[in-house]
Amino acid sequence: MSKTYRWAIVGLGNIAHSFVKYFDQPDGEIYAVCSRSQEKANAFAAEHNIPKAYGNLDELLADEQVDIVYVATPHNYHIDTILPALRAGKHVLSEKAITMSSTQLAIANDELATVALTFRAKMPKRGIVAYENGYFTVDTYPRADSATFTDSEGHTETITAGDSTNAMNYEIADMQKMVAGELHNTSLAKTTDVMDIMTAARAQWDFRYPFEN
């Protein structure tokens, strides 16, 4: 009999609603939600028929039924959930950006068990991959289900694969496979590379968030 992985969502904004909408795992369930407001947690849980609602992170992490924590708070608060969750023995799936900087991620590295990074943006994204004899155009990257190849003479061909509306569910399925030891976790190394690039770029631009000290 396979294990049922029980998920908990921390942070109940728009992305949390999307997570619940697309969650569809035969061996997983959304078991609990957590917000700084107990009232908000109760309302979210009632709306989506989720068994447990917490207004305190420590109480959520003390729940032994929770296997995986999905961090959907604003990214400046990610580290405040990631570290306690890992120290409580939970697996963690975090929204982007995983932390504020490479420095924060380096602190978390001592604790990290299984962490995956998801990308989401409100602005349209287009990826272009150029070759000697043509190029691919990928719209709505990185959650695309089609790509258009244009050759050197201007002829085009569209390639389709997968279902972009189910993209988040693919990530959830991969996370559960990593926890089960069925899939090698390469996300931490990739996430570290991304954070190094972002931190270096911010330093070059002398860019600071309003909430940074």
Rank of each mutant, 00 (worst) to 15 (best):
R126Q: 12
N14W: 15
P142S: 01
F149Q: 06
I15L: 06
A16I: 03
I50Q: 09
S37D: 12
A43C: 01
T118S: 11
L61T: 08
P26A: 12
K190G: 15
Q25G: 13
I107S: 11
T137N: 13
T191S: 14
P74G: 14
K122E: 13
D145M: 07
Y141C: 13
T156Y: 00
T114Y: 09
P51R: 05
A113D: 04
M178L: 06
K190E: 14
V71A: 06
I197E: 08
D193R: 08
A200C: 00
G134N: 07
N166W: 01
T160H: 13
E157F: 15
G11W: 09
Q204T: 11
I50N: 01
F136W: 13
V138R: 04
K21I: 02
H155T: 06
A203V: 04
S2G: 05
P210F: 05
D24M: 01
T158L: 00
V179Y: 10
N213E: 14
S164G: 04
A167C: 07
P142W: 06
H78F: 07
N49H: 11
A144R: 02
S152A: 11
H48C: 02
D58G: 05
N109W: 11
A85Q: 01
D67A: 06
N169K: 09
L86G: 08
T148L: 01
G13N: 02
I172W: 15
K125T: 06
F149E: 03
I128Y: 05
H17G: 03
H155D: 10
K122D: 15
E212F: 09
D196N: 14
Q25H: 13
V92G: 01
T150I: 02
V69M: 07
H155C: 12
Q104I: 06
F211Q: 01
A97R: 12
S146K: 15
T99A: 15
A108D: 04
C34R: 03
D24R: 11
A144D: 10
E29F: 05
A8Q: 06
P124Q: 14
D145Q: 10
A161Y: 14
E157G: 00
R87H: 03
W205H: 07
A189I: 10
E59F: 08
Y22V: 10
F211A: 09
I9N: 01
Q65V: 02
I68D: 02
A72M: 08
I197Q: 02
R126T: 15
K177M: 08
D24L: 05
H155S: 12
Y77T: 05
V138L: 11
D58F: 07
I107P: 00
E132W: 09
V66F: 08
